[in-house]
Amino acid sequence: MTAGVVVLLRDPRGIAGEFTRRPAAVSVTVVVVFLGLVALYCRALQRTLAVVRPDARTVAPASVWWMFAVPFNFAEDFFIVRNVTGSLAADGRIPARAVGRWSALGYGWCGLQIVSLFPGAIGYAGGSLALPVWAAHWYLTSRLNRTLG
Rank of each mutant, 00 (worst) to 15 (best):
G4H: 10
I80A: 07
V30L: 04
L8I: 03
T85W: 15
A90M: 05
V31G: 11
R10K: 07
D11E: 02
A104N: 15
W138I: 03
A98D: 15
P95S: 12
Y41G: 01
V59L: 02
C42E: 13
L117F: 07
A75F: 10
G123W: 09
S116C: 02
L140Q: 14
W138V: 05
I80S: 04
R101S: 10
V33N: 00
I15R: 12
F74C: 04
A3H: 07
A136Y: 14
V81N: 13
F34A: 05
G111P: 04
Y41K: 00
A69F: 10
Y124W: 15
V5L: 09
V81E: 12
P132I: 08
V64Q: 03
F118Y: 11
A104R: 15
F68N: 05
S128F: 04
V64L: 02
A104G: 11
A3G: 11
T48G: 10
R101F: 14
R82L: 11
R57T: 04
V28A: 05
L129G: 04
V38T: 02
V84P: 12
R146V: 02
V52C: 11
F74V: 11
E76R: 15
D11I: 00
V33H: 01
G106Y: 13
G36Q: 05
V52P: 04
A130S: 13
L140P: 03
R22N: 02
R21W: 02
S87L: 01
T2N: 10
R57P: 01
R43L: 15
T2M: 08
M1I: 02
I94H: 07
R13H: 05
T147P: 00
R97A: 15
P61I: 00
A104P: 15
V5C: 03
V99E: 13
L140H: 07
A16K: 00
G92A: 09
A125K: 13
I122N: 00
G92K: 09
A135T: 12
A75E: 13
P95D: 09
N83P: 09
V133C: 10
R143M: 08
V38E: 10
F34W: 06
P119E: 10
L8R: 07
F78W: 14
P23F: 05
A3I: 07
G36T: 01
G149M: 03
P132Y: 14
Y139G: 07
P71S: 03
G92M: 04
S116Y: 01
P95Y: 12
Y107C: 09
R43C: 13
G36V: 02
F74P: 05
G149K: 01
P71W: 13
G123Q: 09
A125L: 10
R43P: 08
S116R: 04
A60V: 06
F118V: 08
M67W: 00
Q46M: 14
Y139V: 07
L112V: 02
R101N: 14
L105T: 12
L129V: 13
F19T: 01
R143D: 01
P23C: 05
V31Y: 12
S103Y: 15
N83S: 15
V115T: 12
T20L: 00
I122Y: 00
A44I: 07
Y124A: 12
R13W: 05
T20C: 02
R10H: 10
P71R: 12
T147D: 03
A44N: 11
G111E: 03
I114R: 08
